[in-house]
Design a protein around this nucleic acid. Structure first.
Length: 264
DNA sequence: ATGGTCGACAATCGA
């Protein structure tokens, strides 16, 4: 089974790039973030046209929004609360019937958190920390189940998840407070599937800012997108692909797709 | 230290 996560940064604008992703990676399931489309304007023809008859989406006007496209039947899971009581469309969960049995799949878009890494003066940063703390409590209390969690978590936890650990320690996405919280969330019951395949000492990025003339040359990337699995799924892990080519597609997203291959 | 570029949507806001 192939599962892709991608912050597409506007689904409607980049529908042609979604088609290209499908042609190049042939995923069974695609989890999107930042769809930026309200549910009533969701492009309903896109899923079936691309070979994904099963589509769920939670969107809103202008911001946020998540969607899951699937070749396999999926059933929505409605056990999560309204995170931080904001109704801001950052999470979708479904159950996938794999050969090995049902797997719960979670698609997250964690708040970016604004520019100033101080919760007392920056409400967006406070929201980010509170969001991660709340989801951590939720998963820590959840009954054991085979789970896959993917998405744009907007935190790069490890030294080599950023282009310069020293220069980014005070930059939102890599501050110690964010890293500590992200790792606590991960330790609520998940294994980092990307680092299962790529050693922690090796640079690994999924996002490169638009604000660089030549993203590949400067290579000032961060690993903001993640794929986690519960320990029972570790023996089924087959591989991880960071589709860097997508950063050079016409009018690209600033995030690239990450694909998990699973024997399940 | 600063500014650099995107997308949505119509003046900025969020990233």
């Amino acid at each position: 089974m192939r599962i892709v996560t991608w912050n597409i940064n506007s689904l409607r604008l980049r529908l042609p790039l979604l088609e290209r992703l499908v042609l190049e990676l042939s995923p069974d399931i695609v989890c999107l973030q930042e769809t930026k489309v309200p549910d009533e304007l969701f492009p309903h023809a896109a899923g079936p046209a691309l070979g994904y008859p099963h589509v769920v989406h939670r969107g809103m006007k202008s911001y946020n929004g998540v969607a899951i496209f699937s070749r396999l039947p999926i059933a929505p899971v409605d056990t999560a609360p309204d995170w931080c009581l904001r109704n801001d469309r950052r999470h979708l969960a479904v159950t996938v019937q794999a050969r090995s049995g049902p797997i719960e799949l979670h698609d997250f878009y964690v708040p970016a958190g604004g520019d100033i890494p101080d919760a007392s003066v920056n409400p967006k940063f406070a929201h980010k920390l509170a969001f991660v703390e709340e989801v951590t409590r939720h998963f820590a209390a959840a009954p054991p189940h085979p789970r896959i969690l993917v998405g744009d978590l907007n935190i790069a936890p490890l030294e080599h998840d950023v282009w310069s650990h020293r220069q980014l320690l005070g930059i939102v996405s890599h501050t110690p407070g964010e890293v500590e919280r992200l790792l606590a969330w991960q330790q609520s019951g998940f294994v980092d599937a990307m680092r299962h395949f790529v050693p922690a000492g090796q640079k690994l990025y999924t996002w490169w800012s638009y604000r660089n003339r030549d993203w590949r040359l400067s290579d000032r990337g961060r690993r903001l997108d993640h794929v986690w699995v519960t320990p029972d799924l570790v023996p089924a892990l087959q591989g991880i692909t960071v589709h860097k080519e997508a950063r050079d597609w016409p009018a690209p997203s600033d995030h690239v797709p990450v694909m998990l291959e699973l024997d399940a």
